[in-house]
């Protein structure tokens, strides 16, 4: 009886190799996408320009003794306070002007028990930035800001 020619690959071998290669490519694609997204986001977080802006705001908050005392008192019972509307400040017009010139969209102040999960009420990108903050837990207060150009920054108020 003539022997059959059994060169070549069977279907199962081909499928296994194809599945393995596809799996590796999908894994690489997912990792590359995540790295690329983090890389893009890092451009928008804590730029030098924004940190100097926050420094101005920090100096202003600290200089308004009455307002800062009220804020500290409120933070004993609340995890965070939204300062965007300037209601808590002595000179609301000055505060509004400062925030307008610094292009502030949202600004909140938190205490040393800062936990980003308590701040999920804010928009997705702002919340994502808050989650990226490494809070040491030893700081007293922290301001977290979103700017109108889509950038974000944070600064401690020790």
């Amino acid at each position: 009886m003539k022997k059959n020619n059994d060169k070549g690959f069977v279907l199962a071998e081909t499928l296994i190799v194809t599945a393995f290669v596809a799996g590796v490519l999908i894994f690489i694609f997912i990792e590359f996408t995540a790295i690329s997204r983090n890389y893009e986001e890092s451009y928008n977080y804590n730029t030098v320009e924004n940190l100097y802006s926050l420094n101005n705001i920090k100096e202003y908050i600290i200089s308004d003794y009455e307002a800062f005392s009220n804020i500290k008192e409120n933070l004993n019972s609340q995890k965070s306070i939204n300062l965007t509307d300037c209601v808590l400040f002595t000179n609301k017009d000055y505060c509004s002007k400062l925030f307008e010139l610094e292009q502030i969209k949202n600004i909140i102040i938190t205490n040393n028990y800062f936990d980003s999960n308590d701040l999920s009420e804010y928009d997705t990108d702002f919340y994502k930035f808050m989650k990226s903050i490494n809070s040491s837990g030893n700081e007293n207060y922290r301001i977290i800001t979103s700017f109108k150009d889509g950038t974000y920054a944070t600064l401690r108020l020790d």
Partner: peptide, 17 residues
């Protein structure tokens, strides 16, 4: 320059932009 009229003369009331 931007100026914000304030009653307290001892605090910052203007900005150079």
């Amino acid at each position: 320059n931007e100026h914000v009229p304030l009653s307290d003369l001892s605090v910052n009331d203007s900005f150079l932009v």
